[in-house]
Design a protein around this nucleic acid. Sequence first.
DNA 1: AAATTTGTGGTACGTGAGTACAAGAATGGG
DNA 2: CCCATTCTTGTACTCACGTACCACAAATTT
Lengths: 194, 194
Amino acid sequence: MTAATPKGERRRQALVEAAAGLLVDGGFDAIRHRAVAERAGLPLASTTYYFDSLDELVTAALEFQGNAELAYGKARLDELDPAECGGDAFVELVLDLLLGPSGNRDAEAVLLRYERLVATGRRPYLRPLMRRMSGELHSLLFDIFARAGQPVSRERVEELIALVDGAVVNALIEISPDPRAAARRMLGKAMQPR
Amino acid sequence: MTAATPKGERRRQALVEAAAGLLVDGGFDAIRHRAVAERAGLPLASTTYYFDSLDELVTAALEFQGNAELAYGKARLDELDPAECGGDAFVELVLDLLLGPSGNRDAEAVLLRYERLVATGRRPYLRPLMRRMSGELHSLLFDIFARAGQPVSRERVEELIALVDGAVVNALIEISPDPRAAARRMLGKAMQPR
DNA sequence: AAATTTGTGGTACGTGAGTACAAGAATGGG
DNA sequence: CCCATTCTTGTACTCACGTACCACAAATTT
């Protein structure tokens, strides 16, 4: 159900944000009616009033989080100074877009981005949303490469994303996972001038 | 707990196989005491008798499944005829090792291999096992490339694996996921003679 | 053969979850 | 001011799950 009153809309939004927070901290399984309500400081029943099912709440949380990440990416694109796109700095920029800002407690925060992809395998209802966000991310990267004076084809963007994603999922099984370092290594090598 | 009697050992093994089956069909969350017992045709309490905790059962199931996959890979290596390693056939061979034999109901079966990687992020107790299996898989691929007359460095193996893994996780969000096709495309391009 | 270990399985407890419900409060238009 | 719609929330029902328990059977050891 959708809210019809301003206050209702605010409450609904508070629930979405709480759910998104839980999503980041604990993954999809952490989004539960009771946990969301508590985190938002609202009663349990408010979650079932504004969302017909838990899936709907999960979808809203994912959309909120995804949009936040895309907004961050767009901001980085806007403030991009082509002069400061030396090799290493540019690699870090791309990693920021794909994995989130560095300084995130890493393995933890990166994990969610990949749980999302894989979870979509068993939750088909997330696919349309994930497709949209993935498409926007690709476009964003495409623009960033162009803006940085290193234009690439869309196909090449897909390759680089795949390389980073693969490096990350394989890094997750290390004793002390450092997925960003693994991705940096692969990406740095792939982007080296030939 | 470990079994001490031959019959006990058989029962324990039946539980592990049942759990592995559930793992393949429904992912980690599908491994539950009751489901495992029912699938094995044994009483509920047998699961707690042979395994101190559910984690132990999950670990055993994963190990069983992983070993089966590695055995399949070794068999493919043994029967490898270097003469039949034309480009396309060889790509398919590599995909068979990384994604499982073609003909698997694809998106379904491939999914587990990536759930494992990501799940390890939130289940540290799986890491040692995953590391071991991942290492063996890398070695296997290294040997296969050499045997096929296309030797590559271990670093290059890692790159190709990352490329395939990244292609797969990104393919999972499609409306009708075909991760194998996506991986085939990327891998084929990356392995093209330069 | 007795004793001890090992295996077996029915049952039940406690917990946490999704969801339903109904009674009450707030809101806004006539 | 009233009334209908919208919102709010405490409570409770049902279910599935992990796990513990215990009486008993089978096997193994002494």
